[in-house]
Amino acid sequence: MLPLDVAERLEREPNATEYIVGIVRARMRAEDLDAELAKRGLTVSDHGRARARAQRAQVEQEWPPGRRKAVRERSRRAAQDAWRVFGDALDRPARDVPGLREPLSTPPVLEPQTDVLHE
């Protein structure tokens, strides 16, 4: 049986299952991050978490409404542009991609000298 406050909260969700799954997955990601940090010799204390939350709250108060959304959108567009450039490069012959001509025309160190570009 769920506590009353939790049951009331879930009643406000159009899809309680999806809501719960999202929360559990977020918790799983946090646990995975803690495990990865611990594997590398780093531990996150409750005090450290509280400090990080306080710093985040301060930043959120300092940012005007919409700034986070604008930064996220700008980052998304930059990533899309970078992937588009990368994809365009994959569609061209390697010898036509700036920066690849020289490495592709340099003979391998351990193999006999050959014309790599086959021009």
Rank of each mutant, 00 (worst) to 15 (best):
L117A: 00
L4P: 00
E62G: 04
A35D: 15
P103V: 00
E8S: 11
P65N: 02
R40S: 13
D81Y: 06
A38Q: 11
E8K: 05
L100G: 00
A82K: 15
V21Q: 15
W63A: 11
E62L: 14
P98S: 06
V6M: 13
A79S: 06
E102K: 06
Q61W: 05
D46Q: 13
P103K: 03
A30V: 14
L10C: 09
L37Q: 08
L117G: 01
R77M: 07
V85F: 12
E119M: 07
R27F: 09
D46I: 05
G41W: 08
P108Q: 09
V6Q: 06
E111T: 10
V71H: 01
A57P: 00
D96G: 02
V85D: 08
G87D: 13
P14Q: 11
E8Q: 12
V6W: 07
Q80C: 06
P65G: 04
G99E: 07
R77D: 02
V59M: 07
E13P: 01
R76S: 14
V97P: 00
R51A: 08
F86Y: 15
A52G: 00
G99I: 08
G66C: 02
R51K: 09
I23N: 09
R25W: 05
E11N: 05
A78H: 08
E73K: 10
D91W: 03
M1R: 12
V6A: 07
D96F: 05
A94W: 09
I20E: 07
A52R: 08
F86Q: 10
G48M: 13
H47N: 07
K69S: 13
R40E: 14
K69T: 12
V21A: 14
L10Y: 06
G66P: 01
T114I: 12
E8Y: 08
D46W: 06
P93I: 02
R84D: 07
T114Q: 05
R84G: 00
L10V: 04
P93T: 07
A50Y: 07
E13R: 09
L33H: 11
G66F: 01
L110A: 11
A50H: 12
R27S: 12
E102N: 02
T106W: 01
V71E: 04
D81N: 07
R40T: 10
A70F: 11
T17S: 08
L104F: 08
Y19P: 00
I23Q: 11
K39A: 14
V71R: 01
Q55I: 10
K69H: 12
I23K: 09
P112K: 12
V116H: 01
P65I: 05
A26S: 15
L104Q: 00
L4S: 03
A82M: 13
L117H: 01
L42N: 14
L104S: 02
E8L: 11
R9G: 14
K69W: 06
R9A: 11
A70T: 09
A52I: 05
R27I: 13
Q113D: 12
P108A: 09
A54F: 07
L33I: 15
Q55G: 06
Q80I: 11
R95L: 01
R56Q: 05
M28F: 10
R51N: 13
P3R: 12
R49W: 04
N15G: 01
